[in-house]
Simulated assay, not measured.
Amino acid sequence: MTAKDTFAISDGARAALSEWLDHIRALDGASTNTVTAYQTDLTAYLAFMAGHLGGSAGRGGLARVTLSDMRAWMAHERGRGVGARSLARSLSAVKSFYRWLSERDDFDATAVLSTRSPKFTKKLPRPLAPDAAMAVIETVGMQSQHGWVGARDIAVATLLYGCGLRISEALGLTCADAPLADALRIKGKGGKERVVPVLPAARDAVETYRRLCPHPETPDAPLFRGVRGGALGPRIVQKAMEQVRLQLGLPATATPHAMRHSFATHLLAAGGDLRAIQELLGHASLSTTQAYTTVDTSRLLEVYNAAHPRA
Rank of each mutant, 00 (worst) to 15 (best):
S117E: 05
G83Y: 03
L62M: 15
A129C: 02
S96Y: 00
K95F: 04
T66S: 15
V112T: 08
G81K: 09
D131G: 03
K119S: 14
W100C: 10
G81P: 04
A133K: 02
G60D: 11
F107Y: 12
A63K: 02
P125G: 12
A133S: 14
S92M: 06
S114M: 14
L113A: 05
T66P: 01
G79V: 10
F107N: 08
R64I: 00
W100E: 01
D106W: 03
K122N: 10
L67V: 14
D106F: 08
A72H: 02
A72R: 04
S86N: 10
E103I: 03
L124G: 11
R99E: 12
L62C: 10
A63P: 04
H76Q: 13
K123A: 12
D106C: 08
R99T: 12
V136K: 01
D108N: 14
A75N: 14
R59K: 12
G60C: 03
R64L: 13
K95W: 07
R99S: 06
V82T: 11
A133F: 00
K95M: 08
I137A: 05
S96W: 02
R89N: 09
P130Y: 01
A109S: 13
P127S: 13
K119E: 06
P118C: 08
H76K: 09
A129V: 03
E138N: 12
G60Q: 13
W100P: 04
R80T: 10
L101Q: 07
F97M: 08
K95R: 14
Y98T: 06
M74R: 03
R104I: 13
L113E: 01
R85Q: 11
A84G: 03
A132M: 02
A63N: 06
V82R: 12
G61T: 06
A84T: 08
L113C: 09
A133R: 00
A63G: 15
D108C: 11
W100S: 06
S114D: 14
V112H: 04
A132F: 00
F107V: 11
A72G: 07
S90M: 09
R71Q: 13
A135K: 08
G81V: 07
H76Y: 15
T115A: 13
Y98Q: 08
E103L: 15
I137C: 00
E138T: 10
R64Q: 15
K122Y: 05
R71L: 09
G79H: 11
W100K: 07
D131C: 04
R80V: 14
D106A: 12
